[in-house]
């Protein structure tokens, strides 16, 4: 664990010295503020549309950050050969996998925290109230989901040769789960046989990332039960662990050269 933490601090240091995050954050802020300054029929105190746009940008940015940073980690170590001096130390490959995961996940969490703070400030100035519980829940669930995404990307990065193909594949997977995951079994019903079984298997096997998307409840001020948040976190934990172990299984015996 000590080693994994040491590796994760290196990852965080690297990410903090790169520009992508700042660019995305500033872009999100600017677009949101621009949208906020538009006048709609001289109506006062409209805020939901702005929250919607801000959250959408946060989701896109977070996925971009998570995928872009994670996909490069292990391939870059191998390409730059930094993995050699690292593994020449008493470090196991499991520790490398966990360290990379923790680093990316923590970095994403920090970035996400900043994004949600911005969101909270926006809601505060617009509506005069801060849904502390709601925003915290949204952040927490979002972050839990990123754990699965980061672990998935890590697995992809040891399976696929090029980081770009990895990013594309994982992004398509994540996007389709977020958009269609909830309905897959219903789509399956309307299909013919081999497709139906296949789709049903997909439905029950895949990580349901759409659980973690509570944008609609946050915008329309519904509440998510805390127990459900807890169960969802456990759910995320299981899938993350599964993907990490799978990554390790692939990476464990891989020759490095």
């Amino acid at each position: 664990m000590n080693n994994a933490l040491a590796i994760s601090t290196i990852v965080i240091k690297e990410l903090s010295r790169r520009k992508d995050f700042y660019v995305l954050f500033i872009m999100t802020a600017i677009i949101t503020l621009l949208m906020g300054s538009v006048n709609f029929f001289n109506l006062q105190g409209i805020s939901k549309y702005l929250k919607e746009i801000c959250l959408l940008l946060i989701w896109i940015s977070s996925l971009a950050i998570a995928l872009a940073t994670t996909a490069r980690q292990i391939p870059a170590e191998r390409e730059n050969r930094t993995i050699f001096p690292l593994l020449a130390k008493p470090v196991t490959r499991w520790e490398v996998v966990v360290g990379k995961f923790l680093g990316c996940w923590f970095a994403c969490g920090l970035a996400l925290g900043l994004f949600y703070l911005f969101f909270g400030a926006l809601a505060l100035t617009r509506e005069g109230q801060f849904q502390l519980g709601g925003v915290f829940q949204a952040w927490w669930l979002h972050w839990s989901m990123l754990a699965i995404v980061v672990a998935m990307t890590l697995l992809g990065s040891v399976v696929f040769a090029a980081p770009s193909s990895n990013v594309t594949i994982v992004f398509l997977g994540v996007a389709s789960i977020l958009l269609l995951g909830r309905y897959l079994h219903k789509i399956a019903v309307s299909m013919t046989e081999p497709g139906q079984t296949l789709l049903s298997i997909c439905y029950f096997a895949m990580p349901h990332l759409e659980f973690f998307d509570v944008r609609d409840t946050l915008i329309h001020e519904w509440s998510v039960p805390w127990w459900a948040c807890g169960v969802a976190s456990l759910y995320a934990c299981c899938y993350t662990l599964f993907f990490l172990v799978a990554t390790w299984v692939v990476f464990r015996r891989q020759a490095l050269n």
Partner: peptide
């Protein structure tokens, strides 16, 4: 061939 984390 030695390469280290260049940002450090």
């Amino acid at each position: 061939l030695t390469y280290y984390y260049k940002f450090l």
